[in-house]
Design a protein around this nucleic acid. Sequence first.
DNA 1: AGTCATTGCGAACACTGTACCCAGTCGTGT
DNA 2: ACACGACTGGGTACAGTGTTCGCAATGACT
Lengths: 245, 245
Amino acid sequence: MTSVPEVIWNRPARASRGPAPSLTRQEIAAAAVRLADAEGLEDLSMRGLAADLGVGAASLYRYVESKDELIELMADAVMGSDMRIRAGRDWRSHLRSYARALRAMIQKHPWMVVEGAGRTSLGPNTAATFERVLRGLDGLGVGIDDMLTMVETVDAFTRGRALEEIGDRDAIRRSGLDNDAWMRQQAPYVRELVESGRYPLLSRVIIDAEAPHDPDRLETAFRRGLELVLDGLASMLPERPNRAS
Amino acid sequence: MTSVPEVIWNRPARASRGPAPSLTRQEIAAAAVRLADAEGLEDLSMRGLAADLGVGAASLYRYVESKDELIELMADAVMGSDMRIRAGRDWRSHLRSYARALRAMIQKHPWMVVEGAGRTSLGPNTAATFERVLRGLDGLGVGIDDMLTMVETVDAFTRGRALEEIGDRDAIRRSGLDNDAWMRQQAPYVRELVESGRYPLLSRVIIDAEAPHDPDRLETAFRRGLELVLDGLASMLPERPNRAS
DNA sequence: AGTCATTGCGAACACTGTACCCAGTCGTGT
DNA sequence: ACACGACTGGGTACAGTGTTCGCAATGACT
């Protein structure tokens, strides 16, 4: 007779008795996503969210068991609204468009790089997206195990790249400084690193990065890396899918 | 005349005047790493760390400007103690051993998957490691730009995989439940997902995962994926490095 | 020997997530 | 038609957080 040990996706949104809730899970998740995008996930507070929704802080716990559960709701909401991938022509373009959608989604919602990792909380939208991605790899003569590996490899690469790209942006935001002030603070130390002469290759990277460069250099690096990964994945297929024997 | 806008790596560990500090940055970082490994980074508190070190909570702020800066210290300490990679025979084995070291390090210090991402805080150990990895790719006729891409690609893949692997472990830990209780809580919902028939491929993945499987299945998946990535990277080299023309 | 920058740190501040309790609401069973 | 009682909203409270302030004690420099 344990109380209510049930995962949120199996809990009814509305009770059979008593007054109707004044909010929906969708409304709450949407507002929370908006706030997290604007201020960062760690600056999202239950009180702030409640105020934004025009309710008391404690009321949120009528909809959600904990902040972690709220984040599960947010993650699944984003999977529903920002991961509407369409089927690709072949496995390669399919995985490519999955990776690009994933990257675009993470750039819009940076906290998703961590919160959306793994298949821990299989909300309906998360499950549907996963199913759709797998479907693009079905019928190629690849076992479910290897299909999973292919998806996970693309996912890992994309998430990892996003993690690196976001790292700086996030560190700057957390410092409270703006971009220029942050650069000015780092400059003396970085200069010292370069001038010490102990890090010749790192120095080349730094100097290269300081040069006026392609604004979407990161995007280019991602695309190139992705193609390399896809090249590698091709070797998991039994044989050429085009041209019968 | 701003106060002390200097990055921690450029601040002297000891002041020229006044009493000697009773702690060192190394001691603090080491203790913090130990606590974060045991309880998770988000359960690491300044008060808890101070108590562990036998000092007052406010004293830590004589060594570190903020908790974020403490984490920078921790990250660099780990880079020094757990990323002592040795040079490989060729670029491929070099990147492979880097990836494996990175993976092992993250499994030992799960919080490093996020905190160690990007080259934001270039502490001495982080810089040295980075330099060492790049050195293994020098002299192959690849430009610094592409060398960086190669490292970032391996890093992204490894970090991304680690992120996925850690995701579940972390969600379980945060829930406060043990592994069995957590599985028991998820079971009814997952069963419903499968029985709904709407996710045939996802269901195959779930059923496959439930079967008694290789304990180091994740390790195997990582190794295979890594080789695929390395295969892809080979195409960035000008030509075969073995056998002169 | 004296100056005074520096250290350690108790206390306090503005927060946080969340448990508890009570008043008010409304679907349901009689 | 009515009353029961499960339910919702939410004020208050609690234990905890990162961080600041002020002050006494220390000890390296002039």
